[in-house]
């Protein structure tokens, strides 16, 4: 080859790497807490609520930091997040429907 392009490897930004591992640590810690809850708290709506809250917390870290959505433009953020409102709507009507089916069958 007559023309060799020089590839310059930039130095590692220690702070960035530290942040990645910190987020990883948070995700691991939340999962551990979920485990502890699974065996210490009796079944009930409090337990379910805790699990869902912790799951959404984890999801926030994955989407915002790992998928970098937290650092994108607001229009991009909203075009991904707002359509998810349909999912929340679907959860409510389908759980309601499930209860209705239960009433009919029993």
């Amino acid at each position: 080859m007559e023309q060799q392009t020089q590839i310059r490897v930039q130095p590692v930004d220690k702070k960035k790497i530290q942040k990645i591992w910190r987020v990883a640590g948070i995700l691991g810690a939340i999962t551990t807490v979920e485990f502890i809850i699974a065996f210490t708290i009796g079944a009930g709506s409090a337990k379910t609520f805790l699990f869902i809250a912790l799951t959404i917390w984890k999801a926030f870290y994955i989407v915002s930091e790992f998928m970098h959505l937290g650092h994108e433009k607001k229009s991009l953020k909203m075009s991904i997040l707002l359509p998810m409102l349909f999912v929340i709507f679907l959860i409510f009507i389908m759980i309601y429907q499930g209860n209705a089916i239960y009433e009919v069958l029993n």
Partner: peptide, 8 residues
């Protein structure tokens, strides 16, 4: 969720 809630 739907199927689970429709079972006892």
């Amino acid at each position: 969720g739907l199927i689970r809630f429709s079972h006892p």
